[in-house]
Amino acid sequence: MEQKVKWSEFIKSAAGIEGWIDDDIPEVLFVGRSNVGKSSFINALTNNKKLAKISSTPGKTRLLNFFDINKGLFRIVDAPGYGYAKVNGKMKEQFSDMMNQYMETRPNLKLVVMLVDLRHKPTTDDLGMYKYLKYYQLPVVVVGTKLDKLKQNEIKKNEKMIRDTLELKPSDGFIKISNTDKRNVNEVYDEICKRLEVNPEV
């Protein structure tokens, strides 16, 4: 498989507006439940196993993490996983404030990639996140993870279940991927570039 991301680098972490990067490079926000495989997907997409830290403890990411893709083509912004039960109320509130501030006021934010687990019906947290994104009219690509865990006859049925539960809009993309064998990972990169109107072949 041709590797489309030729360069990726962690830039910084930030909790609030004072830590954001002041330029006009487009940003793609990655959101998803704590155990959906978000860090693994970022590493598969960039072919860099050490880029996003994968923890055995879900919910470890506490900040927004900024990654440069192809030397300024765009940035990935990795958000804290949501829906992790062991995170206390005050911390959830801080997460919520940070996410609200970023999603509502960040001019660089051009697209949200929302990860869901293909094996399961979207949770209440998934549904809440999707509705929130739609309320603020943010363009979304839904990425279904763990494709390799499904039998062939389950794939279409589970995609329909997810589409119906979230009430996906026709304008929202839906791509099924596997972090393990990297199936369709390049499709996500191509879709991001198409939405951002940037050249994927840099």
Rank of each mutant, 00 (worst) to 15 (best):
M1H: 12
M1G: 14
E2S: 12
K4W: 10
K4Q: 09
K6V: 11
S8V: 04
S8Y: 04
K12I: 02
K12Y: 02
S13Y: 00
S13I: 05
I17V: 11
I21E: 14
D24K: 15
V28E: 04
L29Q: 04
V31Q: 01
V31Y: 00
R33I: 06
N35I: 04
V36D: 11
K38V: 10
S39K: 03
S40Y: 05
S40H: 04
S40G: 06
I42T: 09
N43F: 02
K50P: 00
L51V: 01
L51R: 03
S55K: 07
S55Q: 04
S56V: 10
T57H: 10
T57Y: 09
G59A: 08
K60W: 13
R62Q: 15
F66V: 14
F67Q: 03
D68R: 11
G72V: 07
G72Q: 12
P80S: 10
G81M: 02
Y84P: 02
Y84N: 05
V87P: 14
N88C: 14
N88W: 14
G89N: 15
M91A: 15
K92H: 03
S96E: 15
M99D: 06
M99L: 15
N100E: 09
M103C: 12
T105I: 02
P107F: 07
L109Y: 07
L111E: 02
M114C: 12
L115I: 06
L118N: 01
P122N: 03
T123S: 10
T124G: 07
L127N: 06
G128K: 12
Y135R: 12
Q137E: 09
Q137R: 08
P139D: 11
V142M: 07
T145V: 07
L147G: 08
L147C: 11
K149V: 04
N153M: 07
K157G: 08
N158R: 13
N158G: 02
E159F: 10
D164T: 12
L168M: 13
P170F: 11
F174T: 02
T180S: 11
D181W: 07
N184S: 08
V188C: 08
Y189V: 00
Y189W: 00
K194P: 00
K194A: 15
K194N: 09
K194D: 14
V198F: 08
